[in-house]
Design a protein around this nucleic acid. Sequence first.
DNA 1: GACCCGTTCAACCATCTGGTTGACAAAGCA
DNA 2: TGCTTTGTCAACCAGATGGTTGAACGGGTC
Lengths: 131, 131
Amino acid sequence: MVAADPLSQVFAALADPTRRDIVARLAVRDATVTELAAPYPVSVQAVSKHLKVLEDAGLVSRRREAQRRPVHLEAEVLDLTTKWLERHRRRAQARYRRLDALLASMPDEPGAGTGTAPGATAGSTDPGAGP
Amino acid sequence: MVAADPLSQVFAALADPTRRDIVARLAVRDATVTELAAPYPVSVQAVSKHLKVLEDAGLVSRRREAQRRPVHLEAEVLDLTTKWLERHRRRAQARYRRLDALLASMPDEPGAGTGTAPGATAGSTDPGAGP
DNA sequence: GACCCGTTCAACCATCTGGTTGACAAAGCA
DNA sequence: TGCTTTGTCAACCAGATGGTTGAACGGGTC
C-alpha cells in the first residue's frame, strides 16, 4: 500500500457493504473475527482482510485476549469524514443561497454569462483550507 | 458496473482525492470539464472518467450548454453518507455511555455473568472484559 | 463548407481489490 | 504431550480502477 491520505482510506473502507455492515455491528458491541464472519457467505480469511482494511483506516482496533482478537470500533474516526462532508455541504448550500439572492436582485439577463461567474476561474485546489 | 448500492457508490466516489477535490471545487461554483481538469497533472479524459464516477453516484449532474457541459454538485446526496455516519457514531457513543454506567454500577465480577446485562444486547458475543 | 474547441468513446495497460485455498502460529483443553 | 480453536499469512485468480493515447462527435466561428 502506498499510504493513502487518511480521508481516502476511511472513505474507501466504508465503500464496501460488507465492511459497512461490520462497522454497524461493531457500533453495537465488540466482536471476534469468527463472530463477525458468521453472517456472511465468505471465508473467515476474507473477513480478516476486511478487518485489516478497517484497521489500516483507523476505524477499528484489535486487542489480544487469549487466542481471540476482539475487534473494537474507533468511532471518533467517523467524525473525520463527517466533518469533510459537512464542510462542503454547507459551502454548497451557502452558494445556493447566494445565487438565490443574486437572481432575486437582477431583473433579467439573456443567457450568455451563466458559466463564467464573476471572480476566479478554477483557483483553489486545496480542499483542506477551511474558512 | 454491477449497480452497487447508492451508499457504496458515494463512498467509493469520495475515496479518491482527485474526486474529493473536484467536489470541493464544485461546492464553490459550477465548472466545465476543462476548468476542472486544469489543476491536475492528468489528461482531460481521466477527469471526464472521474466525473462519470461522481455522476453515477448521483453527486454531480451535467447540463448541456452550447458545446460545454457545466458540472453541478448535487449536495443533498452528501447527506446520505452523513446520515449513515452519524447514526453509527451515535450508536457507538451510546454504547460507551452504557458501558460506563455498567462498570460504575458493578464492583467487580469475574467473567460469568457479563453477557447477560440488562436490556442491552444479550447476544453473549462479548467475551468478558478481563483485564 | 472548413476549421477549431470541448468532450466523450474505445482500446489498451498496470495496479488494486475481494475472493479463494492451503499452510502455519498461538493459546487453551484433553 | 497431543489436539482443537482462532486467526493470520501466502499464493493465486477474476474483475474493477485509474491512467494513457488516438479517434470521433457536437456545436460555434471563419
